[in-house]
Nucleic acid binder design. Structure first.
Ligand SMILES: [Mn+2]
Ligand SMILES: [Mn+2]
Ligand SMILES: [Mn+2]
Ligand SMILES: [Mn+2]
Lengths: 218, 218
DNA sequence: ACCTATTTTTAGTTTTGTCTAAATTTATAT
DNA sequence: ATATAAATTTAGACAAAACTAAAAATAGGT
């Protein structure tokens, strides 16, 4: 399994190709910042290896074997991200790039030991669930902050956009995973929100709210 | 800097190319389990990049820039080996393969933090010195056990051969870094040694003794 | 049903790193 | 000094993974 093949599988999974959905050539090309013709070439190769179902002009979806492989890469990526934050004091906006490299290290023992050292974390620094060794996913009952009704409250559990600029913005505004957020008011005009964050009041744009996952309190 | 280029530089360094010595095409090819013609191709490329001095039919030596790069890869390799042993309970015969992959991860912050986490180790699990960030080497006053005179004693500080079979053999015979070894007798016939190891007597072949580094006691 | 715009594939190139086989240079031995 | 052997380089090929440009298929709109 080459690094490139692994990256394609991961991307197809993230685009929904694990749910029998057919992912288009263009969607993959855009996500990977490559050209559609390159995607076609790889689609054929992955199909030959039994990792994707590929029908000309119809896109690709992952086979069971492809899903398994994609999940193992995603598991490694997220465990390394936790390692970088918990053990090496990286900030959550610094880890993704390095994890993109570390996820391709081939050693089952290595990743199992990292998992153990971290005491088997369930979520990565951005709140994304870490698949178990046998490819099980811990999905969480969560919703976007932008979809929470006024006067409900919950705990921030994840980010949809995990780009460095967004994460740094959150840091600057004291928004972090585990913080309590209550929706005080929604502005009709621009969908901006007036929220209570850890006791303090704050106004945030729709764009921010639409990239924060919240778990509603019982 | 590609992974392949890094591996060539590291190999040339290990073969002595850091001391203005000219390393032959065949020596590099043999060490890297590749063909001489491939080495010639790479020699030209590395020369173009100013990393080696290459004279046709005469072999290559590292430039200052090449030495610097080689030392940075070796530093990463050895720090990762320490990490695997100290933090993840790998044995010293398991670490090399994984370190061969990890040494190519590109992140200065990552390796500096690993160094810090390990409290700036000076030697790797096989007793090899870890170059400092600015490329300084901690050479040790050491010699091969096979070259120690009868009735001298010292501490085992390193292995010359760090292949898994040899390391496992050492484990089985309770030979480990830090253990005290005294040469009791040398057999003229086959150069085998009669030694005292941590108080117990033991016979070892010349081949074993010629792959153990010992630091003579003052 | 037909035309058009978009998507996707094909065909042909490029780069990196490898290989084999052949040619060339250097080393060795008489 | 010359023949022979060994080491090294050259030339040409290949696989992986990308690209561009052109061809083909699909989707939408009238
Ligand atoms: Mn990430
Ligand atoms: Mn993440
Ligand atoms: Mn090693
Ligand atoms: Mn080592």
């Amino acid at each position: 399994m080459t690094r490139s093949e692994e990256n394609y599988l991961k991307t197809i999974f993230h685009l929904g190709g694990g749910n029998a959905q057919s992912i288009t050539t263009n969607a993959i090309a855009e996500q990977m910042e490559t050209k559609p013709s390159s995607v076609t070439d790889m689609a054929k190769k992955l199909a030959d290896k039994g990792l994707v179902n590929y029908v000309k002009y119809q896109g690709v979806s992952l086979t069971d074997s492809g899903i398994k492989t994609a999940l193992s890469i995603i598991r490694k990526h997220r465990l390394w991200e936790v390692f970088l934050v918990k053990k090496l004091d990286f900030t959550w906006d610094e880890v993704h790039e390095v994890a993109e490299q570390l996820e391709h290290i081939k050693s089952e023992k290595l990743i199992d030991k990292i998992d153990e050292l971290l005491e088997f974390p369930k979520y990565d620094p951005h709140g994304d669930p870490i698949p178990t060794k046998d490819g099980k996913f811990m999905e969480r009952d969560e919703q976007l902050l932008s979809e929470m009704p006024v006067n409900t409250q919950g705990v921030c559990v994840g980010v949809k956009d995990s780009s460095a600029p967004f994460l740094k913005f959150l840091d600057k505004n004291n928004i972090a995973l585990g913080h309590t957020i209550k929706v005080l008011e929604k502005e009709d005009f621009d969908q901006s929100l007036h929220i209570e964050l850890q006791g303090k009041e704050l106004r945030i744009s729709h764009q921010i709210a639409a990239n924060l996952y919240v778990k509603k309190n019982d």
